[in-house]
Amino acid sequence: MSQKRKRSDAKSPVNSLTDHERILYNLIRSKQDMGIWSRDMKQETNLPDTIVNKSLKSLQTKNLIKEVVNIHSKGRKHFMAAEFEPSKELSGGAWYADGKLDMDFIKIVRKQCVKHIVRLKVATFEGISDALKRSGIFKEDLTKQQIEEILRAMVLDKEIMELKSNGSGVFNNIPVGKVCYKCVKEGGSVSEPRIGAFASIPCGVCPQISLCTPDGIISPKTCVYYTKWLEF
């Protein structure tokens, strides 16, 4: 047993760990890609603060563990064994960088999608995915899931819309019934959604509407939103 360990990990720093360090290291490793918060370690191991802090530092310098960002609580010290990558729950997923949504990246991907959809008039998922790949803009190809996620968000923003092919006209060569995407506005500019009648008048967006009465302090007669609206 001891021989075996020696052979495999002869030079591994694991062998030079103190008892406390070993306990903590095993705990952290057991959490795999979820890692663990330092406060929870103290609770689970019942070790005093000073020892935990000292041991964690030592484990870090030995490159056995690393500190990672937990997007849910950025202030907390969260640790993970060096060989794991933070899970999606911790990092926020593919669209997150350093615990924040990578807005610049997302914007670029969306822009590229719109560009291809505009060019193709109506595009299938595969069409968009191929075009993105061929463009060579991204260092790594986006996953199928990533493209799906982006398209879905764009549908929610009413930037593009989903529709089914009817096999003719612009849908020529696309099998009938296949889901396609099309830009809502010609040219792919982000369209302001159609604003309904209620949302187009001051009362429709007024935070005070529940307090507004004909003869009250807040009233349509004295309403400043109205005065501004009716300024000509």
């Binding site: 929610l156 923003d157 959604p193 309904g196 209620f198 429709g204 967006v205 935070p207």
Partner: peptide, 25 residues
């Protein structure tokens, strides 16, 4: 729904609009 969504957009902004559209769909 469209009318509702535009109310949400104007009152709570784009992120809330997207969330509302997701949940209502």
């Amino acid at each position: 729904l469209e009318e509702m969504e535009s109310i949400v957009l104007k009152r709570y902004g784009q992120d809330a609009y997207r969330i509302f559209r997701l949940l209502s769909r």
